[in-house]
């Protein structure tokens, strides 16, 4: 148990170390500000085995993994799943440091879960007692067990979802979902939304620059400044979004979008024997772990 905590502490430490080192190493392209406390969800291009899997295979893997996380109650199972997850990261050439850096927030949060459990749960065997003048700290076995189980569950679910997003190109997922029968109107909602993210980011920058040019600045936090900020940022964003949408609608409808119930897809994602094997193995493995633990 203590090993588990140590591993996590070790990870947190290493994450801080890596930040300091990247800060010192100014020539490296990775800078501190690029890794905010909240991870940015983004597809990272690559050509590994994991990247080449069919998007739906990856989705099935994610579902199987998540179901396992919830059906396997024992903490040891949690650690096993975490190891499998880390293998997944390794296979996608993302490595441990990537995992730690991107999931820093999740790791800290898991540590907090353990702390909360230790403070409030007083059951099982007394594990450790640190006598202090006013309040002695007692650590009970059930608290540690619960803490690690819940913490690992959280890490596993978030880590797996994060890996999925990192190795799956969102548009190819949308195309493959449409091919298995999701109505294409909904699929294209996702595709056009993704297409317009950089456009809106650019628009936001332009609005920000216009604020700077007009000398508009917001000092202090009060209800008044917040409402003003909303008025000055969101209204122009919405106005420009609506005009873009109007043009987009003309362009898409003009190209027969929605004329027929189905459509041809040139972006065909081929389901290979590897995909089937991977899915079968994952299901078998999860059942084995479930039976064993």
């Amino acid at each position: 148990m203590i090993v588990g905590v140590d591993i996590m502490n070790g990870k947190i430490n290493s994450s801080i170390n890596s930040d300091i080192s990247s800060k010192i190493n100014k020539n490296s392209r990775i800078s501190f500000s690029k890794y905010p406390i909240l991870p940015d969800l983004k597809y990272v291009a690559g050509s590994t085995f994991m990247h080449h899997l069919h998007p739906l295979t990856k989705l099935v893997l994610l579902i199987v993994f998540s179901v396992s996380v919830f059906t396997i109650e024992h903490w040891a199972g949690g650690i096993l799943l975490l190891l499998i997850l880390l293998c997944g990261y390794k296979a996608a050439q993302l490595g441990l440091s990537y995992f730690v850096r991107k999931l820093r927030f999740i790791l800290i949060f898991s540590a907090l879960i353990i702390v909360v459990q230790v403070i409030f749960v007083k059951e099982g065997v007394l594990f450790l007692e640190i006598p202090l003048p006013f309040l002695s700290i007692t650590v009970w076995s059930v608290a540690i067990e619960n803490g690690i189980r819940l913490g690992l569950r959280f890490i596993n679910i978030m880590g797996a979802s994060f890996l999925f997003v990192t190795i799956t190109q969102p548009q190819s997922l949308a195309y493959s979902l449409m091919q298995i029968g999701i109505p294409y109107r909904y699929g294209f909602m996702l595709i056009t939304a993704l297409r317009f993210i950089p456009v809106f980011r650019q628009e936001f920058n332009q609005i920000k620059n216009a604020h700077l040019a007009k000398g508009i600045s917001f000092t202090g936090i009060s209800i008044k400044t917040v409402t003003r900020m909303v008025q000055y940022v969101f209204i122009p964003m919405i106005v420009s979004a609506l005009s873009k949408i109007a043009s987009l609608a003309v362009s898409m409808e003009g190209r027969a979008f929605g004329k027929y119930k189905s459509r041809t897809f040139m972006q065909r994602q081929v389901f290979t024997i590897t995909d089937i094997l991977v899915i079968a193995t994952s299901i078998l493995a999860s059942i084995c772990i479930w039976i064993m633990i």
Binding site: L194, R255, G258, K259, R263, F265
Partner: peptide, 19 residues
């Protein structure tokens, strides 16, 4: 605002696909 996909080929294919 008139392009709804990610690559040029996809974009030109978009209309005929709908047909």
């Amino acid at each position: 605002a008139q392009l709804c996909t990610f690559s040029v080929r996809e974009e030109i294919a978009f209309g005929p696909e709908n047909l």
